[in-house]
Design a protein around this nucleic acid. Structure first.
Lengths: 114, 114
DNA sequence: TCTATATATTCTTTTTAGAGAATATACTGC
DNA sequence: GCAGTATATTCTCTAAAAAGAATATATAGA
């Protein structure tokens, strides 16, 4: 029961769902996500930790950056199914589509050297 | 986004998931659910309200009793998909299977006249 | 209409979750 | 090793969620 609840809880916060929908497009580092969501960096890190613990995302260190990406769902059947469903869901949501169209503008190199 | 979050939130509480798994077996009234979950009656009513608002359950008044049952999911595609998945999920969970085997013992007539 | 009973609602308390500021850690290049 | 930068963690505050006690509502039957 616990793993199931963990996935549901992870997906019941709007910012975390936004992160999932962003990562559907491409893997992103913390500062890119922070810019896309317009919330603080610690907040992004904490959301990512929750998503990781539930088996929805994973990460790879890349020098100073940490790239987050969606898992293949091998760690959790619940995560796998939900990630699959989410690919079809919410694609008409104006807030999300707006956010996604802004992705190309996010340039890691310029974003992080502030 | 809101309807999606609402379904996820509804399913991120253990007692509400238990209610769903119980209603998979048969429709039940509040006092039967209360006995199965061993929590207070107001608590059951509030959980049911949350489940109803998210489109996961519906009810029918039956005299003094109110029978709750799973929806066909027509009100929410998210609810529909999750209810479908849940039929396969958590069926090996000892807490849940134990609870479900106790259902036949719950007799509405004896339960409610306390 | 009066009583009894099933459920809903309100109220209060305790726990949990989310936010950002401040700080710590980890990695890179010199 | 030192300086700079990306990310993680800690701390504190505020808001939301869950619980049960007490109360209100609604229905059935005498």
């Amino acid at each position: 029961m616990k793993p199931f609840i963990q996935v549901m809880k992870a997906l019941s916060d709007p910012n975390r769902v936004k992160i999932i929908k962003l990562l559907e497009q491409k893997s992103m580092c913390v500062c890119e996500l922070r810019a896309a969501l317009n919330i603080s960096q610690p907040s992004v890190s904490k959301h990512l930790k929750i998503l990781e613990a539930s088996g929805l995302v994973d990460f790879q260190k890349n020098g100073l950056w940490v790239d987050y990406f969606l898992t293949d769902g091998r760690q959790s059947p619940y995560a796998a199914t939900l990630l699959g469903s989410l690919k079809h869901w919410l694609n008409e949501d104006p807030e999300l589509t707006g956010m996604i169209t802004e992705i190309p503008v996010l340039d890691r190199e310029t974003l992080c050297k502030r």
